[in-house]
Design a protein around this nucleic acid. Structure first.
Lengths: 109, 109
DNA sequence: TTTATATATCGCAATATTACGATAATAATT
DNA sequence: AATTATTATCGTAATATTGCGATATATAAA
């Protein structure tokens, strides 16, 4: 089929999976790291830095924007992208809430 | 195309993206949460709990096993799955190393 | 030995993702 | 007004993922 059955999972499970999915691409990891290193950047910087086509970078930026982890501000004829620190920390917190669930020892493993 | 250009990214970026990818499905989140709640479980427990086909659950378990976050031990005619706490904590640590990069304030956003 | 139980794997169909060329849209520059 | 620079979007091809029925495998039970 190829269609995730979202309706059988909780909203929390779907939301967490979506966050993971947006981060699950090396180009998007690289984009985030580049923005952090430079504090901000424009789309073309990333095209030169990463060597992917402009359309591809633009699409990755759109996906990162979709979860709010970056935001873009129009500056003349370019768009300045930067990290939204609040969202960045919220995502880290959500991940840690998930990972801080106590893993109990058991019999078999 | 549809083929991620892994060769243009660092090994670290590819590895992190892979970890995110394996966790980027609500069924796999649900499986991990169920195992944590029960300490361990067998494949069939998950089939009943989640309402996905046995083949589907088995495939998700295989993917989780591929990053070592769970391990399976043969117990009679079933397989007992549990969290590998060491790997669990390592993944959490890897994520936090990524998220603890300092986000500096900048001019535009 | 036959049957039942539990899991893994194969093969397939449906859908999603990735990448990019072409092109549209917008604003600055000439 | 025409040109240039920057980004977004559309359309498309290639590949990946998801889900499941069918089937293979392996152990326990009868």
């Amino acid at each position: 089929m190829g269609l995730t059955k979202s309706e059988i999972f909780t909203e929390e499970q779907n939301k967490l999976a979506t966050l993971f999915k947006i981060l699950a691409h090396p180009a998007r990891i690289a984009i985030l790291q580049y923005i952090i290193g430079q504090r901000s950047c424009i789309c073309n910087d990333l095209v030169e830095e990463l060597g992917l086509a402009q359309a591809t970078i633009s699409q990755h930026l759109k996906e990162l924007k979709s979860i709010g982890i970056i935001q873009g501000t129009i500056e003349g004829k370019s768009v300045c992208y930067c990290i939204d620190e609040k969202v960045w920390k919220k995502i880290q917190s959500d991940f840690n809430i998930f990972f801080n669930q106590e893993v109990k020892v058991n019999k078999c493993c």
